[in-house]
Simulated scan of single mutants.
Amino acid sequence: MLNRRSLLALLFVLSAIGAAAAQPSQDPLPSWNDGAVKKSIADFVARVTTQGGADFVPVEQRIATFDNDGTLWCEQPVDFQLAFAFDRIKAMASQHPEWKTTQPFKALLDNDMKAFAATGEKGLLQIMTATHSGMTIDEFRKVVLDWTATARHPGFNRPYTDLVYQPVLELLAYLRANGFKTFIVSGGGIEFMRPWTDKVHGIPPEQVVGSSGVAKLQTGANGKPELTKLPKVEFIDDGPGGNRSIGRRSIFAFGNSDGDLQMLQWTTAGEGARFAGIVHHTDAEREYAYDRQSKIGKLDKALDEAKAKGWTVVDMKQD
Rank of each mutant, 00 (worst) to 15 (best):
L175Y: 01
Q76T: 06
A16W: 00
R292C: 12
V314C: 06
G123L: 05
P24S: 06
M113I: 15
H281P: 13
G70F: 12
A19M: 11
K309D: 08
T228C: 08
E271T: 10
R158E: 12
V313G: 05
P104D: 05
A54I: 13
A20N: 04
Q26P: 10
L175N: 03
E170K: 07
G277M: 02
F80Q: 06
D69L: 07
T219L: 07
I246V: 10
L10V: 14
T131R: 07
K181L: 13
D27Y: 00
E139D: 02
K114S: 10
G189L: 08
T219N: 06
T268W: 01
D79P: 11
I184E: 00
A21K: 15
W196T: 15
A302G: 03
K295P: 14
G52C: 10
D238Q: 08
P225G: 03
L264D: 04
N178W: 00
Q26Y: 06
K232N: 06
Q318I: 14
P159Q: 13
V164R: 05
L299E: 01
A177R: 09
K224T: 09
P28V: 01
A273G: 02
R5Q: 08
Q318K: 14
M113D: 06
D43V: 09
L29E: 12
G120R: 05
G70C: 08
L172R: 07
A9K: 07
